[in-house]
Simulated scan of single mutants.
Amino acid sequence: MSVFASATLRSSVISRLRAAGCVFAEDEARILLSASTTPAELAAMVSSRAAGRPLEHVVGWAEFAGLRIAVQPGVFVPRRRSEFLAATATGLTRPGAVVVDLCCGSGALGAAVAAAAPHPVELYAADVDPAAVRCARSNLAGGAGPAGARVFEGDLFAALPDALRGRVDVLLANVPYVPTADIALLPPEARLHEARPALDGGADGLDVLRRVVAEAPVWLAAGGTLLFETSERQTPTALAVVRAAGLAAADIRHEDLDATVVTATRR
């Protein structure tokens, strides 16, 4: 939609979004105007956003690490804080590295690593949610990622080919880590419109992480590293879980993004 012909319309969209409680109404209006092709389509998008649907689900994509990632309704929306996880993982790649994006959601992390790595990597991704798998296949086999990436559907490592055992150099696992009791405190965009399994990490938020860490040593190559995101409050327990599995643990903090990444390396 032409920006030059829509000053009044843009103001109207901003006002509607503000009234609906959208904090970044100006930025969202810009995205909605650029994503729509007709006034009718714009009106439908604005109504959907004002009703509480995530902006990314409304327009069908999310901006992540300089990429446009397709995001279908119900699929977890990649958070900006996770760009730190992707960047940390990228720094561990080498030529031909085997990279696995577990609990991949839309495939944003794998796509970001493959795009930013200074050399080609061998990329695999997996998720238990069929909608997420469809989304990830679209992203990782298209413009956002390498055409050769393979995406599997299934529960954690059970989804991966056995041939990857002992070969994984970089294992990204952006597991759900919100404690069950805290789900009700999440913004409605997440609570009502993203799949609960992508959010709920159990009583202390670390149930899925424990499952990943328990199996990771079998899949990691010598010197390979598992990386995951967690909250600052959960970091001490997460580090203890990693060390109990015999992996070398470290945590890295990015204050501006409010992001904490834990690395777990096979000795």
Rank of each mutant, 00 (worst) to 15 (best):
F4L: 15
V23R: 15
D27T: 11
I31F: 10
L32I: 06
A35D: 09
A50D: 07
A51I: 03
E56C: 09
E63W: 13
E63L: 12
A65D: 13
R68V: 04
A70G: 12
Q72F: 14
S82A: 11
A86G: 08
A87Q: 13
A89P: 09
T90L: 00
G91I: 05
T93C: 09
G96T: 10
G107L: 10
V113W: 03
A117P: 00
V128I: 15
D129N: 15
A131G: 07
A132C: 12
A132R: 11
R134K: 13
A149R: 08
A149S: 12
V151H: 10
E153D: 12
F157I: 04
P179G: 08
T180S: 15
A184W: 04
L192S: 14
H193F: 15
P197K: 07
A203K: 13
V208T: 12
V208I: 14
R210W: 09
R211L: 10
V212R: 04
E215D: 12
W219N: 01
G223Q: 02
T230P: 11
T230L: 10
R233T: 14
T235H: 12
T235R: 15
T237N: 03
V241F: 04
L247T: 00
D251F: 11
E255T: 14
D256T: 14
L257D: 02
